[in-house]
């Protein structure tokens, strides 16, 4: 059976919506999480430096969730997507006083 490219949605965190024409939810095509993210930054290139580092890898504080699951615990960027899948970009928030 041939795999078809799924249409999926990506939820954009508030501060990044300035780079997506104020869209909270962006629709992209992608058979995997990695493909969906590449489509997202191809559509909105100014998003790229906020999500990916100079080596093209996701920044360490950027987590991608498929529904309620961190894709790090699935198959990372190779995680397959079903049509209608909902991805969220979720920051790891941390710090401290020295």
């Amino acid at each position: 059976m041939r795999t078809t490219t799924a249409t999926v949605t990506i939820r954009i965190p508030t501060p990044l919506r300035g780079f997506t024409n104020n869209q909270e939810i962006v629709e992209v095509q992608g058979a995997t999480v990695g493909e969906a993210l590449q489509q997202l930054v191809a559509q909105f290139p100014r998003l790229k430096p906020h999500l990916f580092n100079e080596e093209g890898r996701l920044r360490s504080f950027v987590n991608i969730y498929l529904g309620d699951e961190d894709v790090r615990y699935l198959q990372r960027e190779a995680t397959p997507l079903q049509p209608g899948a909902e991805l969220s970009i979720v920051p790891s928030v941390a710090g401290g006083h020295f």
């Binding site: 508030t14 501060p15 906020h50 504080f61 790891s92 020295f98």
Partner: peptide, 11 residues
């Protein structure tokens, strides 16, 4: 540490 761990500008 706060700077090293900072997320997106705008928050």
């Amino acid at each position: 540490t706060d700077l090293a761990e900072a997320t997106f500008p705008g928050y």
